[in-house]
Design a protein around this nucleic acid. Structure first.
Lengths: 152, 152
DNA sequence: CTTTTTAGTTAAGCGGGCTTAACTTTATAC
DNA sequence: GTATAAAGTTAAGCCCGCTTAACTAAAAAG
């Protein structure tokens, strides 16, 4: 076996385990808040990136403006999102999280990482350092990949 | 900053990048085959675990038998899955992938890992070895966590 | 042998996540 | 100033992924 395919095998094994674990926990949390995964994803994006326009939601999630509008409707109605006029362009809207929305995202994020935190406690300090270094390598590599594909 | 929270930070950064990247690519592939994510997940499970009963689908995905039945209906109608009587219990059914289904899963799996393969090519051999080792550590740790929580 | 349980199916209903079509308001181009 | 494009919204429609209810056939229990 080549080194390259050993790498691929390690990554794939991790992906399989990780994806299943992440998705089910995440889905349950969203459900417990009375939101769907898609609705929750929008809250997450707002949290990470600050103010968002409706167009950006539409582009980011690769859905029509109509779908975006209706999706955001539900979040606004539930008090998680504020939808305000953009002062720089009266046609556009700016979306921001409310305190309620921000609180929810933070709770959801904690829930999301809980099992990983537990995982870290099973590792020795040396193991943690190795993993930390490795994941930083990977994270940087992904960012470089993305920068090449879509220069801001 | 403690070593433990440095670890957590590395893992979280990776998770953020990875989840988004994985999910969108995966979703697009499923869509391009005219299937939904859920339908595809069932095919994946069949591929990994061999023959499955309807009850097992229902349990594994935490849905009612009715939902499982209807979901599998679509896969059978599209020729991806065979649904046959279980010789050991005439009430039960056994599900298996058809050749068509197996082919689809293999193509989907390749698609799923493509971006990760590209990522590996951006790394040096040394970096790859570090990542490989680290992910093996993590994968084993998860499996231990799961063994504790639900002893077969 | 009869009763109860199990495995699965079908129908109907509901909410979610889209789509297209049609529309209003605002900004941009000429 | 007029025509075009952009930003967003609402309505209607469709498919998906469930749920409950009702049912049949087979197995298990007593």
């Amino acid at each position: 076996m080549t080194k390259s395919s050993q790498f691929n095998q390690s990554v794939r094994a991790w992906m399989d385990v990780f994806m299943h674990r992440s998705m089910s926990g995440w889905k349950q949390f969203a459900k417990s808040c009375g939101l769907s995964m898609t609705q929750f994803s929008i809250l997450i994006q707002l949290h990470h990136r600050g103010a968002f326009s409706m167009s950006e939601v539409s582009e980011r999630f690769e859905i029509t403006p109509a779908a975006a509008s209706q999706l955001v409707d539900k979040l606004v109605q539930n008090g998680f999102v504020l939808r305000e006029e953009d002062p720089k362009d009266r046609r556009a809207k700016l979306l921001n999280l409310t305190d309620k929305g921000r609180d929810l995202v933070q709770r959801g994020t904690q829930e999301r990482y809980r099992w990983v935190d537990a995982l870290g406690e099973k590792l020795s300090a040396e193991e943690r350092a190795k993993v930390s270094e490795a994941l930083n390598i990977m994270t940087e590599a992904v960012k470089e990949l993305e920068a090449v594909q879509s220069p801001a």
